[in-house]
């Protein structure tokens, strides 16, 4: 089947558009998170999303709206990570570990108490981008616009706290508020990304395009734009490759991202030789 034929299917078009929007969001946020050594917050929040999905299914929320219903608990958990880091004298990785394991534990317990769900909870673990429906596409579009607006409005503050939090604070930037904005938009994005690659692979969308961009970028703004471009390229290559080779889309997207990382890494290493 030719690529032109594949592109005529509505489910492929939706997957390409929604996947590109969500992957670009993940990549943009990923640059801030990776440089602030908060890469694993995506992994932690994805695990919380597992618990939130289980709770939504336990409360008999329609599968169409499970994603939206999961958002409040994931947002609260992201604030919990910040609060633990700030007040409980622990580093961010420990706080992420606690909230993350609590999310998984809650999900497993709820699934057990419910005796299983009609919808396979474990399908959320690996995602199914080709099953993205019109409602998901609208949600992805609205949240894309919202998150991009927030990042644009707070770009200078986010750049400043990523470079050095103390210097930013000395310039009058309210670092606690900006940190809260960053984890909240990350939480929103992680819930959305669940549909693309599944809970297990969300952190790949946050980390891989960002670290690929950091291999070659010569400027902060360039790093953000390159990360988004790499993420969209990987989504398109991953989806088309998965259809052509009959492979899982989520895994293919992550592998495409990894190939881009390998190429950029090799480019950086080889550049001094030219």
């Amino acid at each position: 089947m030719a690529f032109a034929d594949i592109l005529q299917y509505g489910f492929i078009q939706r997957a390409l558009v929604a996947g590109s929007l969500i992957a670009a969001l993940c990549a943009v946020l990923g640059v801030f998170l990776v440089l602030r050594r908060l890469s694993l917050i995506g992994d932690g929040l994805a695990h919380v999303t597992f618990g939130s999905v289980a709770l939504a299914l336990f409360l008999r929320v329609s599968p169409l709206y499970v994603t939206v219903a999961s958002i409040p608990l994931v947002l609260l958990s992201s604030l919990g990570i910040l609060r633990l880091t700030d007040k409980a004298r622990m580093y961010g990785d420990a706080a992420i570990g606690i909230v993350s394991s609590l999310g998984i534990a809650g999900g497993v317990i709820l699934a057990s108490v419910a005796g299983g769900f009609n919808v396979d909870l474990f399908s959320y673990l690996f995602g199914n981008i080709l099953a993205i429906g019109p409602v998901d596409l609208v949600i992805a579009g609205v949240l894309f616009l919202f998150v991009i607006l927030v990042v644009t409005l707070f770009y200078h503050e986010l750049f400043a706290i990523t470079f050095d939090e103390e210097l930013a604070e000395s310039s009058g930037i309210r670092t606690a508020a900006i940190n809260t904005v960053l984890v909240l938009v990350t939480a929103l994005t992680v819930v959305l990304a669940m549909k693309v690659v599944g809970i297990m692979l969300v952190s790949a969308l946050l980390i891989l395009p960002a670290v690929s961009a950091l291999q070659v970028a010569r400027g902060f703004r360039t790093a953000i734009l390159l990360a988004a471009a790499f993420a969209v390229t990987a989504v398109i290559a991953g989806i088309l490759g998965s259809v052509a080779l009959n492979l899982p889309a989520g895994g293919s997207i992550v592998v495409a991202n990894f190939i881009l990382f390998a190429v950029t890494f090799a480019w950086r290493k080889a550049r001094p030789l030219f």
């Binding site: 200078h156 750049f159 470079f163 310039s171 950091l214 970028a217 902060f220």
Partner: peptide, 17 residues
């Protein structure tokens, strides 16, 4: 390996106020 240029860092100093 922070990807900020000298000019981008200097420009950060204009955020105050």
């Amino acid at each position: 390996s922070f990807p900020a240029t000298v000019e981008e860092i200097v420009r950060l100093g204009l955020l105050g106020g």
